[in-house]
């Protein structure tokens, strides 16, 4: 067992983990932040996408110990301080960007990184950026619309 410390959604956290513990496992089972989903556990689906030091990564393909000292943001950190939905989350709700919702945390985290790097992405750019996030319900069209709407609102 090793001790690990990081900042998650603005709060300092510490834990004792097996060296093989994945970041997604630490978030879900130790911190009980179950918004980060495990869809495939084979690095294909992107439902586990979180931000580490501002970069989107697959939480299931990074060791918790590699996030020592890092600033981690999860879907729980995407809401406004008063608990209301953030701009991207609200756009997904407004534009029916989710059906079962399982992939949505990863979609929102990927979209957030995209819009930080590209404030006005084209449909092609959005589709390419979401290549690591799989959705089996929506056919992606409304996810694209949601992200375009969020981009317009964020300016």
């Amino acid at each position: 067992m090793s001790s690990v410390s990081m900042t998650v959604n603005g709060k300092s956290v510490t834990g004792e983990v097996e060296d093989r513990t994945l970041l997604s496992t630490f978030l879900r089972e130790d911190l009980h932040l179950t918004g980060t989903h495990i869809g495939c556990d084979t690095s294909q689906c992107g439902a586990c996408t979180v931000h580490v030091n501002g970069k989107a990564v697959k939480g299931c393909t990074m060791l918790a110990l590699e996030a020592e000292g890092a600033d981690v943001r999860t879907i729980e950190g995407m809401a406004n301080d008063d608990g209301s939905l953030g701009v991207i989350q609200a756009a997904f709700q407004e534009h029916h960007g989710l059906q079962c919702g399982f992939c949505t945390p990863g979609m929102v985290m990927a979209a957030d990184e995209l819009l930080k790097n590209n404030s006005n992405p084209s449909e092609t750019e959005i589709r390419k950026y979401l290549s690591g996030n799989i959705c089996r319900c929506t056919g992606y069209h409304n996810i694209i619309k949601s992200i375009q709407a969020a981009a317009a609102q964020l300016g």
Partner: peptide
Amino acid sequence: IGDPTVRNR
């Protein structure tokens, strides 16, 4: 290469 999350790691 891969997708954005792969490229970030």
